[in-house]
């Protein structure tokens, strides 16, 4: 095992463990904190694939902004164990079945694809570096990029409109 492999296994175990802790924690604030740990583990994977820009943007946007808002809402709602609404047994079963179906779809979709034949380029490849990424986004993929930015803009305008209504 070399350093890269050790790091890979460490990050994978961390990501899976903290993702499991997100759904098994009783306290919603603990769930959010475990989710932040998951994002960090995934960012570590991005860095190993030499996608530094993606890694840092994942931390800035998800861990630094979106999870702060999650934490914000959960703290304001003041959820805790005693007032947590208990779902009925059938609802839990239905949730497990629905989640299992989604897993099945994912496995079926990925089983016959070419993805597992390609091995990840670890520590090589420079498409994830910011200048190459910028060139790719603004030349090859400029139309989808602009369309998604218009989508974001309309979402922002919508949020402002909803926020202003009194």
């Amino acid at each position: 095992m070399n350093v890269t492999q050790i790091l890979f296994w460490f990050l994978s175990v961390l990501a899976l463990f903290s993702a499991l802790m997100v759904i098994t924690s009783k306290n919603p604030v603990h769930s959010v904190l475990w989710l932040i740990a998951t994002f960090f583990a995934i960012s570590g994977h991005y860095i190993m694939l030499n996608a530094q820009f993606l890694a840092i943007v994942n931390i800035i946007v998800y861990a630094g902004a979106i999870m702060v808002l999650f934490l914000f809402v959960i703290m304001l709602m003041n959820l805790n164990k005693s007032i947590e609404p208990q779902k009925s047994k059938w609802l839990k079963l239905a949730g497990a079945v629905a989640g299992g179906c989604l897993l099945l779809v994912f496995v079926a979709a990925l089983k016959d694809s070419e993805v597992h034949l390609q091995s990840a380029e670890v520590n090589t490849g420079d498409i994830g570096l910011i200048s190459n990424l910028g060139k790719a986004l603004f030349s090859t993929y400029v139309v989808p990029f602009e369309i998604s930015s218009i989508l974001f803009l309309s979402a922002m305008v919508g949020a402002v409109v909803i926020g202003k209504k009194e």
Binding site: V29, L33, I36, Q52, F53, I56, V57, I59, I60, A63, G64, A65, V68, L71, F72, M75, L129, I130
Partner: peptide, 25 residues
Amino acid sequence: DINIGILYIFGVVSLGVYGIMIGGW
């Protein structure tokens, strides 16, 4: 000297809020 230097600073600064939020809660 990483090639996303200033974004790294920005990322760490954006995490700084957790100390206050977790402590306060």
